[in-house]
Nucleic acid binder design. Structure first.
Lengths: 222, 222
DNA sequence: CGCACGCTACGACAAAAGTCAGGTTCACGT
DNA sequence: ACGTGAACCTGACTTTTGTCGTAGCGTGCG
């Protein structure tokens, strides 16, 4: 019983807690797929056919504007699910696009299978409630950011979030930051420089050093 | 059994579908309160003590910036609930402020009562899932609006949404629109005028007339 | 009637955000 | 070594957004 699919299921907290009986059922309907880096997993506006859970790799969830600008809603890693919202509303369309950041493996469930699973399993429905709740909070923060803060303020917040202590080690390109902050590369570049000029940051190859968390916190408002 | 509380419960779809037994339980723990127009119902950042359901009136849910600017997240009417999210996350703080728009009556449940109610009642938890799902979609749209559209575009979308056919009858002040659109009064004023100049709107006392829904749809992108 | 108040109009201005073009650096593969 | 492309820097420029002060206009009320 510890084949590929079982291992995959174990990496997904939402599903791994299910009863042995439900798991057995699940094995019959779950499908495993992999995507190359950059591959489109689903397109916003399409009818919702399935829900996804990431086994390995990362996926970026985003919206596109008519002009082609992006806004990232979330970047998800192993164990997290996406496109789990539309099954619960009457007209089920994918609310956002998703693409693989790195080589990414997912489990998919047809919408109907997912819904009936949730119906019979209170634990699962509770887990999804918690998931939705935290996503609502996250989106609310994002809305506040976009509506009430300048790019500079958003960038400061973003860096504070990303930083592990004083160091942001993950390599972010300005373009990536831009789509997270709801703006464009050039503007991120300027904002970064202006924070550097203000003595709040230092940029070295491959990482960013926060010289003053307090200073950045202050930039946060406005 | 058809006292005040029963009537109140009946106006709330989320709760009215509960079993007679659960309802009885509910009657013991639900509290009725009323708020004058403009009264603050809850303040963002405070520890979450209770969840709310509107019996009559309206409530505006919003976030405040350090500078005092607002962003409205939702305006809710009878039957709808708010502050229902924090009970599902580990550290429960009110995610937003709420104030009564008109004279407003609410039922409140202590967080713990609400949670145990959800735990024992699958119908309720399903209903909340649906509620959360539609709120996630709504917030996602809001994020796209704020990140990817100009004020002009947002205003166009807003008016199209508000309009019943070609007429927006509800009296919106520019200030109210501004807090919905994540901007300030002056800017809404300018955007309105520019849409009027473009021949897409006419403004009469007490209402706004959309002269061309197609034209406004076009303004929608950007 | 006259006054206060809320809402709006308008113009001038400042700041922020977005756009564009040219040039630099650096990693990578041939 | 060389070319290529991605990422980034830079400055100039436009547009959008935000801010301010002043003024008009209607409604309601003493």
């Amino acid at each position: 019983m510890d084949d590929q699919l079982s291992q995959d299921l174990n990496t997904i907290p939402l599903l791994s807690g299910l009863s042995a009986r439900t798991l057995l059922q699940l094995r019959g309907v779950a499908l495993r797929r992999t995507y190359a880096p950059g591959a489109l997993i689903l397109l916003e506006g399409d009818p919702c056919a399935a829900v996804f859970f990431i086994v390995s790799g990362q996926a970026r969830i985003y919206r596109l504007s008519p002009q082609g600008r992006q806004q990232v809603l979330a970047t998800l890693g192993p164990g997290q699910g996406f496109n789990t919202v539309p099954p619960f509303v009457p007209e089920a369309f994918n609310p956002a696009s998703a693409e693989a950041v790195s080589e990414t493996a997912v489990l998919t469930l047809r919408k109907e299978d997912f819904v009936s699973l949730v119906r019979v399993c209170p634990d699962l429905s509770w887990a999804i409630l918690e998931d939705f709740a935290s996503r609502l909070l996250h989106l609310t923060d994002l809305v506040e950011d976009l509506a009430l803060r300048s790019v500079r303020g958003r960038l400061a917040r973003f860096l504070l979030e990303q930083a592990d202590g004083l160091y942001v080690t993950r390599q972010w390109t300005q373009d990536e930051m831009a789509v997270h902050l709801g703006t464009v590369r050039d503007v991120v570049g300027r904002a970064l420089r202006s924070l550097v000029d203000a003595g709040l940051l230092r940029i070295e190859r491959g990482r960013i050093i926060l010289l003053s968390r307090e200073g950045l916190e202050a930039e946060t408002d406005s």
